[in-house]
Amino acid sequence: MPSQNNPSAQPKIAIITGGSRGLGRNTAIALARDGVDSIITYHSNREEAEKVVALVAEHGRRAVALQLDTGKVSAFDGFVEKVRSALSELGTDRFDYLVNNAGTSHHNSFEKTTEAELDSLYEVHFKGVFFLTQKLLTLIRDGGRIINVSSGLTRFSNPGSGSYASMKGAVEVLTRYLAKELGPRGITVNTVAPGAIATDFSGGIVRDNPEINKRVADMTALGRVGQPDDIGPMIASMLSDANRWINGQRVEASGGMML
């Protein structure tokens, strides 16, 4: 499999859900630096998605922004057709990398979490990942790569995050099964589990709340909270040919949080 950085190779293409903001945005830009084009999804903010398209273009690569609610499985068939059109626009009929990144936050105790809250988490964080990946299997190249974004919260426990972490834990199990079942096609599947990162996730609580920021930094071996630039390039590296032999693994990127 040619390296991403080989200028004579056909450009690689990544699909990144939730690519208009946070870690998805940073991943698209990191991949652009590595010579990878992207199809990014956004839930509602087209303006922010187009900013990412422009930033990718600044690195000499192309990106296409498509609207998608990753918790609405009924929309996936239509989305796949839009992906086909986007791939044609990018000069191919297949893509190479899938990054299941889109997600929502949730903070509530076990006692107070409602059925509606749990259903919403399930639809976005597990059911959506399961069926979107399934729908896109006909379009991903043999020898491709899939990254499912999880959370450090599947390793350590933080009260109020149990429902969210449980869905991420399910994705980590799914990752191992996908690695086994897609192995005959040469497709690797791994989980990336970020720690607390300073983005707008959860209303920007880690980024914008000095008390929370310090608390996270104090429990992290490297003495600070994570930044998007700590994660996007790491995901890009996981997708590169250099990491072709990593498969079915959970790789935590938390700076040594709660060791």
Rank of each mutant, 00 (worst) to 15 (best):
Q67H: 10
D208C: 08
P2A: 11
L239T: 05
A116C: 10
K112M: 12
V192E: 05
A217W: 07
D93T: 11
S44W: 04
G203W: 09
M219S: 11
D208S: 05
G78L: 14
G91M: 04
I246C: 03
I147M: 12
N6L: 13
G103H: 06
V173P: 07
V251E: 03
N209S: 14
E47F: 11
Q134S: 12
I235R: 01
E47P: 09
M257L: 14
T17M: 07
T191V: 15
L222Q: 15
V73T: 10
I15A: 09
I146V: 15
G24L: 00
T220Y: 11
S88P: 02
S8A: 11
N148R: 05
V206W: 05
G152M: 13
R224K: 12
T41K: 00
W245D: 13
L174P: 12
I197H: 01
G128C: 02
A86H: 05
P184R: 07
T17I: 07
A28P: 01
G143N: 14
A253L: 12
A57M: 05
N26Y: 00
A179L: 01
R33T: 02
R176M: 08
A253W: 05
G24A: 02
T199R: 05
H106K: 08
E115Y: 14
L66A: 00
H125S: 12
G144I: 03
F79R: 07
R46V: 11
S150G: 15
L55H: 09
Y164W: 14
G71L: 02
S254G: 15
L182A: 01
S163N: 02
T138E: 15
D229A: 14
S166Q: 12
D241H: 13
I40L: 13
A9C: 04
G35M: 07
T92A: 07
N243R: 09
A54W: 06
A196P: 14
A9G: 06
D208K: 11
L68A: 00
G22L: 05
L98H: 06
K12T: 10
E111A: 15
